[in-house]
């Protein structure tokens, strides 16, 4: 914008001259929006009654600002929580932390028994995933399900929260017990991916229930009753877990679109 509005044109604009056609008015307004200099020139041209009115308005606004209600206190943390999770995960966090702690204490007490920390690791994220997606626990479920961030994005955010909650206590327990981190990490990731994958079909809460109970019945109960360390949580199984975790994650990402719709 090198050429400014010529003074005669600006004067007729200020005076609302009927001779100025729409196209000319638009040209003036577009220039004014972007040029502080011409706005200042226009302000000087304004008729005294307008200036008086503007002064009155200024005084009224100042008074309103002084006597009106103060600014509302914002709750950015509340907004952030909802962008990443739902409130109902809080009791679940407490439960998982206590379960990991109990498993750790028992493992330290009875090192010759199958490790409860390892038996717990795959299913530790499941309850959190179920709660984060449950229609029952999220009151605004239907209203949010039809929005553009529903689906892949909320899937990613909520899974991050669940894993960020579950993995550190497991890591701490595993480290204090001197375990190979892959032994608890890979099964946890595999079960997370499998729950999300199946959940896209039958609902995450149902998928978590199915996979969680299958693990408990097939692996955990026999391991505890027989006191043998099941082969699935021994180091020999690590390559299989690694493969399963990778395949599961890839499939989950490919099928993320399933979560855009309500499961039946």
């Amino acid at each position: 914008m090198t050429t400014h509005i010529p003074s005669p044109a600006l004067e007729s604009y200020v005076a609302a001259d009927p001779g100025l056609d729409d196209a000319a008015v638009w040209a003036v307004e577009v220039h004014l929006e972007n040029c502080a200099e011409c706005r200042a020139r226009m302000a000087e041209m304004a008729a005294p009654p307008l200036l008086a009115l503007l002064d009155d308005v200024q005084v009224a606004i100042d008074r309103g600002v002084r006597s009106g209600p103060g600014p509302v206190r914002r709750h950015p943390w509340r907004r952030m929580v909802h962008r990443w999770a739902v409130w109902s995960v809080v009791p679940w966090i407490v439960t998982v932390l206590s379960a990991v702690l109990a498993a750790f204490l028992l493992d330290r007490q009875f090192p010759e028994r199958p490790s409860l920390v390892l038996l717990l690791a795959p299913v530790a994220p499941l309850a959190g995933l179920a709660v984060a997606w449950s229609r029952r626990s999220d009151p605004a479920w239907e209203i949010t399900a039809g929005t553009s961030r529903a689906g892949l994005e909320m899937l990613f955010r909520r899974t991050v929260v669940v894993l960020a909650t579950v993995l550190p206590p497991l890591a701490l327990a595993g480290w204090r017990l001197g375990m190979n981190p892959a032994l608890w990490l890979l099964p946890a990731l595999t079960f997370t991916a499998a729950t999300l994958l199946l959940g896209g079909r039958i609902g995450v809460d149902r998928a978590a229930a199915v996979l969680g109970s299958a693990w408990v019945l097939v692996i955990v109960v026999p391991a505890i009753t027989s006191a043998d360390l099941p082969v699935v949580i021994r180091s020999e199984s690590l390559p299989v877990w690694a493969l399963a975790a990778v395949i599961g994650t890839v499939l989950t990402l490919l099928r993320a679109g399933d979560h855009q719709r309500a499961p039946r």
């Binding site: 709750h75 509340r78 907004r79 962008r83 009151p139 605004a140 239907e142 929005t147 553009s148 961030r149």
Partner: peptide
């Protein structure tokens, strides 16, 4: 028809959250 909501949200926070969800 049965729209759920987060009771602790203010009206403004709630509408803001929905605007954010709609990108």
């Amino acid at each position: 028809q049965h729209f759920g909501f987060y009771p602790r949200f203010t009206v403004r926070e709630y509408v803001e959250y929905m605007a954010w969800l709609r990108e």
